[in-house]
Amino acid sequence: MRSDPAANVSISLLARASSGDVAARDQLISEYVPFILKTASKVAGRYLHQGVDEEISVAMLAFNEAIGAYTKTKGSFVGFAQTVIKRRLIDYYRKKNSGPAEVLLSELEHEDPQGHVLQTQIDFMAHRVWRDKLSQEVRVQEIAELEQALHAFGMHVAELPKISPRHQDARQRAIAVSHHIAHSARHREYFWTRKELPIKDLVLETGISRKVIERHRKYIIAITLILVSDWPYLQHYVRGRIQDE
């Protein structure tokens, strides 16, 4: 029986593809086409056809993105790729149906000339409900992944409401520090490997005092984790809070 290529990913091939080897990347994508189709079809809730359904293109791009973004700290490559594909497809559906979709009861009762009820709107509503449920599942998954990431820093999700700075200016300074870390490859590496903040450098580069950074250390860590991870719903929530202020 032929083995599933997704279960036997070549570490060396993945490493070459991640480092910019175009031939290795093309080979990896080619070997994973069945996996990509299967994952995308599962998210779509129906069988997808190459060259027909746009979701396949979205999934292929997501898999290509996963190759470039993958690191050992993100667990297995297969699991990471599945997550990226799922999230990009949810983003695709959300943008595609961003407008209100009100369906009147009368629209569900149209009949064709033979008297058969047309299923188009019913199917659309069922798929919309399913997609909303899937979005909720992704939100729950993101929170679970955040909890796991926080645990590595000696923190828990339950702490987050308590560690948020009370004053707006303090929050803004803390968020500015998080953004500074997120946009610096050197600081991100330090953050992930040391599991702590590069406080000395942050004081020098941001002009924010050591006292402020240390006082809001946990909040800065939590926001930084959200900014540097692939959690679109949590990132959307954080950016919305920032804009509201």
Rank of each mutant, 00 (worst) to 15 (best):
E107Y: 03
G51E: 02
E245F: 00
R16P: 02
T73F: 08
A126E: 13
D123C: 08
S10C: 06
G207V: 01
A62I: 10
A44S: 05
R139I: 11
N64F: 07
V33E: 10
P5G: 04
L105C: 08
E159D: 05
Q121C: 11
G99H: 15
Y47H: 13
M155F: 01
I199R: 00
V84S: 01
A69N: 01
D201W: 13
T39R: 07
I242N: 11
G240I: 10
V138L: 03
H187Y: 12
Y92M: 08
H156L: 13
H216G: 01
A6V: 06
Q119F: 12
H183K: 14
S10L: 12
A69D: 04
A81P: 00
N64Q: 09
D26K: 14
L202N: 03
K86I: 04
W130N: 13
Y237W: 10
A40I: 03
A40P: 03
Y219E: 02
L234P: 03
V117S: 09
S19H: 02
E214V: 11
Y93P: 08
A185F: 11
D21S: 06
V22M: 10
K200G: 12
K74W: 05
L197K: 07
Y32M: 15
S135Q: 12
G99Y: 13
V84D: 02
R217T: 05
H156E: 15
A69Q: 04
R87M: 12
A59F: 11
K162I: 04
V228Q: 14
H179K: 14
I56R: 02
H151N: 09
W192G: 08
W231A: 12
L61W: 06
H151W: 12
E196N: 15
E189N: 06
L13S: 07
F153D: 01
I29D: 04
T206N: 11
E111H: 05
L28K: 00
P165G: 00
S184Y: 13
P113M: 01
L28F: 01
L234F: 05
A15H: 09
F35G: 02
D91I: 14
Q119W: 07
E31R: 06
V9R: 06
S76K: 02
D26F: 04
G45V: 05
R194I: 08
T83P: 00
A101I: 05
R87P: 04
E107N: 08
D230M: 02
